[in-house]
């Protein structure tokens, strides 16, 4: 966990809705946070290096870009195989999120989740087949849960 002071928190608050679209966006953030531009940039560099900021850039809206098929592929991978399998699945260029999660037996046997987006369900299924091939015998079963409706979508809550 990254230790934050009050100035860091003010910088987070100043950027939670995004960077201002002006020639010197960090100077604008700095003013809101009550520091100078140089300090705001230095702190953002530190927060990026520590992983508190994942990345800085545009966050695409999948649906608006035509990637309307959203499949959560879930896999029952042998416990002794997941150390090796997880990073390999996460490295596939069409997987946007990849996590290990707990099983809820007997109801839910799946412990590896890989999110796959595509322009159609068929495209997602093709990609899922590639994951299945990669996992081979270490996978005892899988499923793909397509989203049928977005019920809510807002940002994460960050203490500021």
């Amino acid at each position: 966990m990254t230790m934050l002071d009050q100035i860091d928190r003010r910088i987070i608050a100043a950027t939670q809705t995004g960077l201002p679209l002006v020639e010197k966006p960090y100077a604008a953030v700095a003013r809101t946070a009550g520091v100078d531009e140089e300090e705001a940039i230095a702190r953002l560099q530190r927060l990026l290096a520590s992983g508190a900021i994942r990345r800085i850039g545009v966050i695409p809206n999948h649906y608006a870009l035509g990637l309307t098929a959203n499949g959560m592929s879930v896999w029952d991978v042998a416990d002794d195989a997941i150390d090796q399998a997880g990073p390999r699945i996460g490295a596939l260029d069409f997987v946007t999120h990849c996590y290990e999660r707990p099983r809820h037996l007997p109801f839910w046997p799946y412990n590896l989740f890989a999110m796959v987006h595509g322009r159609s369900r068929a495209e997602v299924q093709d990609k899922v087949a590639r994951i299945a091939e990669l996992l081979g015998a270490s996978c005892r079963g899988h499923d793909v849960l397509f989203s049928t409706r977005i019920l809510k979508k807002t940002g994460l809550r960050i203490a500021a």
Binding site: L4, Q16, L19, L44, L47, A52, I53, R54, A159
Partner: peptide, 15 residues
Amino acid sequence: RISRFGPLWNAERLG
């Protein structure tokens, strides 16, 4: 077409 522009914060790293 983009939902956001700026730093993407890692909520867990921030506590």
